[in-house]
């Protein structure tokens, strides 16, 4: 049985394995740094840690009118990444039989982003694969960006 932190973007429910989750934050001040890759909205300062912020709403092309926003900090190959989402719902445990393999395309999302689809009480929760959320070029860009950010934070 695996547990997933379930969050909302627009009308859709997404899940991240809680072993990936570091913490959940309120909306924070987002700093813009020069030479950040396009897919990174900025960086946030979490108790001295500079964490790049990935706006999942932009990433998935879901336009929401939500005023509220939350940040889930996840661990992705030893790097922490903040994911900007609308709202955190709750922690939901899934039995393996409740998770089905994703179809080739689901609601316009490429399957490579997904671990599977979790079904629970009429809800379908899109379970994200954090590792595949970024392409390898993006990962390299992110690493160099976080190096720059670390350098900046050390300088300051």
């Amino acid at each position: 049985m695996e547990k997933f932190a379930v969050f909302k973007i627009g009308e859709e429910d997404f899940g991240v394995n809680i072993n990936r989750v570091v913490e959940i934050l309120k909306s924070q001040k987002i700093y813009f740094l020069p030479e950040l890759p396009d897919f990174i909205s900025g960086v946030i300062n979490v108790r001295g840690d500079v964490i790049p912020l990935l706006d999942l709403r932009k990433r998935f092309g879901i336009h929401t009118g939500a005023e509220k926003c939350r940040i889930i900090v996840v661990r992705c190959e030893d790097e922490k990444i903040g994911l900007l989402v609308d709202e955190i719902d709750k922690i939901i445990p899934f039995h393996p039989e409740e998770i089905s393999a994703p179809p080739a395309m689901f609601k316009g999302l490429k399957t490579e982003y997904l671990t599977g689809l979790g079904k629970k009480e009429d809800r379908i929760i899109i379970l994200l694969n954090i590792e595949r959320l970024l392409t390898s070029e993006e990962k390299i860009a992110l690493q160099s960006a976080s190096l720059t950010a670390d350098g900046l934070s050390n300088d300051s």
Binding site: V21, I24, K90
Partner: peptide, 8 residues
């Protein structure tokens, strides 16, 4: 938020 973090 606190409760969510605690749950995680």
């Amino acid at each position: 938020l606190l409760s969510l973090n605690a749950a995680i």
